[in-house]
Design a binder for these strands. Structure first.
Lengths: 184, 184
DNA sequence: GATGGACGATAACAATTGTTAATTAATTAT
DNA sequence: ATAATTAATTAACAATTGTTATCGTCCATC
């Protein structure tokens, strides 16, 4: 999406001059919090390289529920769109390079490029659809089944992401995940 | 939504004549399947009275994951919009009166009434948002906590819906729900 | 009124997961 | 490099849930 975005802007020289500066590239260390839980999101991020997670606090523990990799746009959608406090934090797992765009800039961008607006609406739709799928997977399967599903559908998760985040993502303790892994 | 829809149509006499016939009222008995799992949805329903549930089959058991009451629109959204096989069935829990509209008719309706189109897009958005909330609730809370949350937020569910559907909705067996209920 | 089916409660046992704690391995910081 | 921190494994025990089966109640139908 970010490539398409950049290419779309580049195609129009005037607009490139106008919008180039709103794309801010940042290198962040591992475990950098980009958005805190409760904060109102003012930025949308695009991952150039690295990996982010979304998590929230539950009784002092953090619960991770989503991972994002290179190429993906990341935002606390509800917070970004409706200026509500974010229900969760966004944080890096690895050293990560992102492009961030401020809300106001992003909105101007969408006004100037209707095709990007469609793209963005589609992104929102997909994000919510993804929630639906995650939800059904939670209901349908046991932790063990979900782990096996994860190996099948997202082997890159297991390779790249520390195990305790995966455990959290699966809804179990790291201890339980360790048991599942060593049971077979 | 259905009231607004009917009122909107009624306001325009020509259009009322044109669209009146597409609204089909049906009385259905308890446990009537309106849409089977795997079937491509060709209708959207509006509940006048009664109660529906959405469920799918998992290893021979049925798993209920949503309830709907009077006033609510119900559809297997993905299937209805994209003509894909539905991932779940829609079935009545009580004797229920519904208004059904066929996909083609509904699409024509939305073309004639842009304000209804907005309403429908909002409905879709809310449905997906609801998935998001259900998803977070599943992650965040234990079955017991989810049951207590349900009592607090939807006491009408407990009154009206047979317990084994509630258990299924909570992600536990009816036996386990019975234990939770009698533990305190 | 009798019969069968659906629903809910309960019991006994197995399987799984959570909790706490100790140990080892791996990573990060100095 | 070394120390300090963080992550993963294992063990022992508690708590919860699933499974199977039995029993009683309510309701519909014959």
């Amino acid at each position: 999406m970010i490539d398409k975005l950049i290419n779309t802007i580049k195609d129009d020289k005037d607009k490139w001059n106008q919008f180039q500066h709103i794309l801010i590239e940042k290198n962040i260390a591992s475990k950098t919090v980009l958005l805190h839980e409760g904060e109102i999101s003012n930025n949308i991020f695009f991952i150039k390289s690295g990996c982010l997670r979304e998590w929230f606090n539950k009784d002092g523990k953090d619960i991770t529920f989503q991972f994002f990799f290179e190429g993906q746009p990341v935002a606390s959608i509800d917070s970004f769109i409706n200026r509500e406090p974010s229900l969760f934090a966004i944080e890096s797992i690895e050293p990560t390079t992102i492009i961030t765009i401020e809300k106001a800039d992003f909105e101007n961008l969408l006004i100037s490029f209707p095709e990007l607006k469609m793209e963005f609406q589609n992104f929102i739709f997909q994000r919510f659809r993804n929630y639906g799928q995650l939800f059904l997977s939670r209901i349908k399967n046991s932790p063990k089944e979900r782990y096996e599903e994860l190996i099948k559908n997202h082997p890159e998760f297991i390779k790249r992401i520390p195990q305790h985040y995966i455990a959290s993502f699966l809804g179990i303790t790291p201890i339980s995940l360790s048991r599942i892994r060593n049971r077979k």
